[in-house]
C-alpha cells in the first residue's frame, strides 16, 4: 500500500494532554455529583442551622460552586445525574452499551427506550473504536495513575508485574458475564465492570457513608495490575473492553504508522498501555486511540488515518538502521526493494 509522506497534523501530538483533561474531568464529575446530591438534600431539608459542622462545610462549598449556575439547587441540580455506566445529561439519557447487553441477557427481551440511550456511545464506538477505554472510563484514570506508580516502583528497584496473558481471555469474561446475567436474571456484568463499580462506590462513599464490596474488588484489580500484569485488567479481563473491541473492529478512525518517518526506536511499544505493537503496525481491534504513542514518537511517525483496516506490516522504518543497511545491500546488488521511495 502506498502512503503519503509528510508530518502529521501538529495538534495530534497534544491530544494526549486533552485525553488526560477528559479523564480528569469525568472523574471529577463522578466525585462532584454525589456531593451535589447531598447538597440538594440539605437544601430540601431547610435546616442549615441544624447541620453538623462537616455538613455545613459541604453545604457552603457546594453552594459557592453551584450558585453561579443554578437558581433553585433542589430542582436545577437534577439536570446532571448518574455516572458513566448510565447517566442523565440535561434530560438526555446515555448508557453504556454493556449495560444494554447485560440487560438484554438478563431479561431476555429488548426494552427499546433503554436501547436508545446507548445509541450515541454505540455509534461513537463504531466510529472511534475503543475510545471509551482511553478517554472517558473513570477506571482508566486510576489504572493509568497505577501504571505510573508501577513505573516509579520499578525505577526504585522494586519488582512489578509484567506478565502477559492471552488477550482473548476478556471475550470469555464478557461471555461468562452475559451468561451469568442470563442465568441469575440480574445484570451481573455490572458487578465485575470497574467503571460501573467506581461510579457506584464513589456515590456510596459520599452519600451513604462508606465504600461497599465493589471497592474491594476494584482494589484487587489495582493490585493485579501492579503485581501481576501491567494494565492487566483492561488488557485481559475487562468485559466492557471486550465489547468495545468487538464493536470497534472496523472503526473508521485509526492511528497508523508512517513508515517513511519511523526510526524503529520502539518508544511507542514501550508506552502503549495495552501492550500493542505500533512499531510493526500491530494495532488491531484493541487500540483505544489514546494517542500516547503519537505523543511520545520523536519523529512524528504516527498519525490518524480514516480507513477500515490496519495497514499490513510495513517492515522496518525508513529512518532506522536496519532499513538503511538493507537498502545499501540492495543497491550493491543493483536491485531496488519493492515499494521503496526516496526516504
Amino acid at each position: 500500500m502506498k502512503t503519503t509522506t509528510g508530518k502529521p497534523f501538529f495538534l495530534w501530538r497534544h491530544l494526549n494532554k486533552l485525553r488526560w483533561l477528559s479523564l480528569s474531568l469525568v472523574f471529577a464529575m463522578l466525585v462532584f455529583l454525589p456531593y451535589a446530591h447531598v447538597y440538594q438534600t440539605y437544601v430540601a431539608a431547610h435546616a442549615y442551622d441544624l447541620l453538623a459542622d462537616s455538613e455545613k462545610e459541604i453545604y457552603d462549598v457546594m453552594e459557592s460552586l453551584t450558585e453561579p449556575f443554578v437558581s433553585d439547587p433542589e430542582k436545577d441540580l437534577d439536570a446532571v445525574k448518574g455516572n458513566t455506566w448510565s447517566g442523565t445529561l440535561f434530560g438526555f439519557k446515555m448508557s453504556d452499551p454493556l449495560a444494554v447487553a447485560g440487560q438484554v441477557a438478563a431479561s431476555k427481551r429488548v426494552y427499546l427506550p433503554f436501547l436508545l440511550t446507548a445509541l450515541v456511545p454505540l455509534l461513537a464506538t463504531l466510529l472511534l473504536g475503543r475510545f471509551y477505554c482511553g478517554w472517558i472510563c473513570p477506571a482508566t484514570f486510576l489504572y493509568e495513575l497505577n501504571s505510573n506508580l508501577a513505573a516509579w516502583l520499578h525505577r526504585a528497584g522494586l519488582k512489578t508485574g509484567n506478565r502477559r496473558f492471552d488477550r482473548r481471555l476478556k471475550y470469555l469474561v464478557l461471555g461468562a458475564g452475559l451468561l451469568l446475567s442470563m442465568l441469575t436474571g440480574s445484570v451481573m456484568v455490572a458487578t465485575i465492570y470497574p467503571p460501573a463499580i467506581i461510579g457506584r462506590e464513589i456515590y456510596y462513599a459520599v452519600a451513604l457513608g462508606g465504600f461497599g464490596a465493589g471497592a474491594v474488588f476494584f482494589v484487587g484489580t489495582l493490585l493485579f495490575d501492579l503485581l501481576v500484569a501491567r494494565r492487566g485488567f483492561c488488557r485481559y479481563l475487562c468485559p466492557g473492553g471486550a465489547l468495545y473491541s468487538l464493536l470497534g473492529r472496523y472503526r473508521l478512525v485509526r492511528i497508523q504508522r508512517v513508515v517513511e518517518q519511523c526510526n524503529d526506536c520502539a518508544k511507542c511499544n514501550a508506552i502503549c498501555e495495552f501492550g500493542l505493537d505500533p512499531l510493526r503496525d500491530g494495532f488491531g481491534q484493541e487500540c483505544n486511540n489514546c494517542t500516547a504513542c503519537i505523543a511520545i514518537c520523536p519523529t512524528d511517525a504516527l498519525t490518524f488515518r480514516l480507513q477500515l483496516h490496519d495497514q499490513p506490516d510495513q517492515g522496518p522504518g525508513h529512518l532506522g538502521r536496519q532499513y538503511q543497511r538493507e537498502k545499501a545491500a540492495g543497491e550493491q546488488d543493483r536491485r531496488t526493494p519493492a515499494g521503496e521511495e526516496q526516504p
Binding site: 440487560q103 438478563a106 440480574s186 455490572a190 460501573a196 461497599g212
Partner: peptide, 29 residues
Amino acid sequence: LSRCIHCGQCGEACPNRCIQYFADENGLA
C-alpha cells in the same frame, strides 16, 4: 431484577435519601 442495571441513579435522585443499596445480604443477584 432483570431490568435494573445497578447504576444507582434512583438513589442519587431521591431528595429524602431513603433509597439504600444492597451489598450481598439479599443474595448476589
